[in-house]
Amino acid sequence: MDNLLSTREACGLTLQNMGHKEKDIVVLDADLSGSTQTKKFADKFPNRFFNVGCAEQNLIGTAAGLAIGGKTAFAGTFAMFLMRAWEQIRNTVAHDNLNVKLLGSHSGLTNSKDGGSHQCLEDIALMCCLPNMSVLNPVDAIEAEKIVINEVYRKGPSYIRMNRISTPAINTDDYNFEFGKAVEIREGEDLTIIATGTMVSEAVKASEKLKKEDIKARVLNVHTIKPIDKNSILKSAKETGHIITVEEHSIYGGLGSAVAGIIVENYPVPMKIMGVNDRFGESGDYNYLINKFGLNDVEIVKNAKELYGDRK
């Protein structure tokens, strides 16, 4: 897998590759197959691809029916528009624990120019609260490929969060993906930056900057937000004593909330939740938005120094 591809391109290619091998994979889209990259599957397997038109509720219901009929159904559209069918996802896909894999493309702020109506900063919260639902957020193309392959064989529903833009490569081809297991990608004993998706590379940059100031920041890549890796999080809390979470998502109900729940219940340590601070997105260049919303290495460093420095 070319690791400079966006996660949506990697998902599309992986589905295409897996389609040859696994005849029970079907893919659905709601008139955004070019954008979500499900078109890659559609071009090869037109009989197993179903475009439902601009109809997200029907997208989910049809995917559920295909799953009941024995298929593994991948249903894609923009993350934002999948949320339109949240109730269908809840009452059928999650409730009946069906093999429906939701592909939420253009998540976070990555659909930057389209503005607030098309950006999705609430999806992790909305998916994590559903029983049976797993929530996955690949950090790069290689991880996206491994996640999709894993989901082809893992039973039950999941939400896979994907980006419009390419993000920096974190993993190499020999990367061993383990569902539900956070990956320590930088060592450190002073504090832990727990990041997901696009924010992992910012966390790595921040860790390198902090090293120069003699703060050794561990970085965890949480690709599986649900079920979350409680052991790795607690281990980091115990070993580093300070936790920062960072995600391209609302500060409410996402990775930060999940980590805070574990920390508070089991081993309270000083913590900072970084994300989008209870507001909607807006149009602009992606980098402009990320910086405006304080989701970059500079802000992580600032928060790390506040959290760690005060208690040194």
């Binding site: 989910i60 049809t62 029916g65 295909l66 024995g70 269908q88 009452n91 059928t92």
Partner: peptide, 13 residues
């Protein structure tokens, strides 16, 4: 409002 969508999926499968 959801059963016909599910029925469609089963029929397609």
């Amino acid at each position: 409002g959801q059963g016909l969508s599910v029925a469609n999926g089963i029929a397609l499968a």
